[in-house]
Design a binder for these strands. Structure first.
Lengths: 258, 258
DNA sequence: TCATCGAACCACTTGCAAATTGGTTCGGTA
DNA sequence: TACCGAACCAATTTGCAAGTGGTTCGATGA
């Protein structure tokens, strides 16, 4: 499995040396390898040669490295990104929409069941504001506030936290252009009407209708996003988005159970 | 609303001084007030007197303070807890179950549609392990791994991140006792059978069946949790949990457009 | 000509100490 | 009794140094 071409090793004996080290019990329990500079002098080769060998081992999945941290034996840990920047970098806009399609209809249903009268008043006021707002930025703000208020009205703090997390990713700068184009033109009127329907259903405590209306709304938003993304203009963005996830993944593969 | 007893202000003129400062345009755009020590000397009073005045203003909601950060004008920001500790502290176990009931059936459905053959193999292996495990800790581990593998198989990194977030809160130490009691006894066999059904549906690409089976499973888990929580023993936990959730919601208010 | 090396620099991460800030206690003073 | 000043505590932020992998460059030598 590991070495179909032994000549590769013989030409570069650092690799063989390292394989021996890894197989050796000396690094059995050790997770972390010495720094490259140290390891290089220990083996008696240059750092560059050592790094070439390490690249092979990393590609094989026997070690993993991270700038600033070190080199470690074993498969790369699962690494669920916990900070938002990383998450938004490696999350595709469509993924976000899929998640919204799972979460927000449920939020609307819960809101219909548990919203307070104060919540409903706020929703009604927000709906007016959203409709009357003229510029794109204004719409964006009011729209965001509206969806968040529904999330609050659902009365589950954990779901609210999840909504906020998704929303912060959605608002990430990388997709601002996309969103702008997605909500351009006559769609805006439809969105307003759909919002109205969702809020009316919540106000009348019709849980199922609220869920359905919200899903319908988000499906339209998703469709608009899809249309914009496949259109010719924003190629630059396409590249930007589909490039970034690769950087860390040239070697990649999720390394969970394997 | 603010000042039913004017003598309070006259006896402590720092309060009036501060009110003037806040109403003054000098702090119109300013969020942050000077440090207490500076502000005290500026006004010409002692720090303790200043702090009493600040306490009043904070109670009125005109300012908010945070140790190590400073004193700020305006209502305390919404504060969606972003770190896990805080979230688990103020999240009720039933809230977590409600969220799982929203998320995981969707994950199961997506997994049925998008799981790779490798995913399915892993699931089948995990199901065996879960069934064969005898002690409670072992079951807990395998169960967790099983649910996470399903989440991975769904193929949406953002949903996976959300699942991980919820799962970490679920695993928080505070509820370990509860969970242990909840999965005691004969329920365990039913859980195993339900897991088997979910996995079978995923393996046969029956999205709807997978979603339904997962929901059924989680509803039973929820019921078990409910039964345990209403039983007499863990009263101490009840108090601890039901205190917290109020704090964040007393003022709420979104800070987007306004 | 090519591979290798050593050195220097860049980018990221960690850890720690200092500074800043609100929170609290204490004794002195009018 | 009320206030003040000082000192200390605790939480947070900031800045810096060290250590690490990632990269580039010129020198060396086969």
């Amino acid at each position: 499995m590991s070495n179909p071409d032994p000549s590769a090793d013989s030409s570069n004996f650092a690799l063989g040396r390292l394989r021996a080290l890894l197989d050796d019990s000396s690094f059995e329990g050790e997770e972390r390898l010495p720094p490259e500079r140290v390891l290089a002098t220990q083996i008696g080769i240059g750092r560059r040669a050592l790094r070439r060998a390490l690249e092979v081992l990393e590609a094989e999945g026997r070690i993993w490295r991270h700038q600033g941290k070190g080199t470690f034996v074993g498969p790369r840990p699962a690494h669920t990104p916990t900070n938002l920047e990383e998450l938004s970098k490696r999350t595709h806009p469509l993924e976000v929409m899929d998640v919204r399609l799972e979460i927000e209809p449920a939020l609307a249903r819960l809101a219909a069941m548990r919203a307070t009268n104060g919540d409903i008043e706020r929703l009604l006021r927000l709906a007016e504001k959203t409709a009357s707002s003229s510029d794109a930025d204004g719409r964006e703000l009011w729209d965001s506030a509206l969806h968040r208020t529904i999330a609050e009205a659902a009365g589950n703090s954990l779901l609210l936290a999840i909504f906020d997390m998704v929303d912060r990713i959605r608002q990430d700068t990388a997709w601002r252009l996309l969103r702008e184009r997605a909500r351009s033109g006559d769609r805006q009127q439809i969105y307003v009407e759909q919002h109205r329907r969702v809020i009316a259903a919540i106000a009348q405590r019709e849980a199922h209708a609220a869920e359905h209306a919200m899903r319908e709304h988000l499906e339209l938003v998703r469709e608009g996003l899809l249309k914009v993304m496949t259109s010719p203009l924003p190629n630059r963005m396409d590249g930007q988005i589909q490039e970034t996830p690769v950087t860390a993944n040239t070697k990649k593969e999720i390394r969970h159970g394997t």
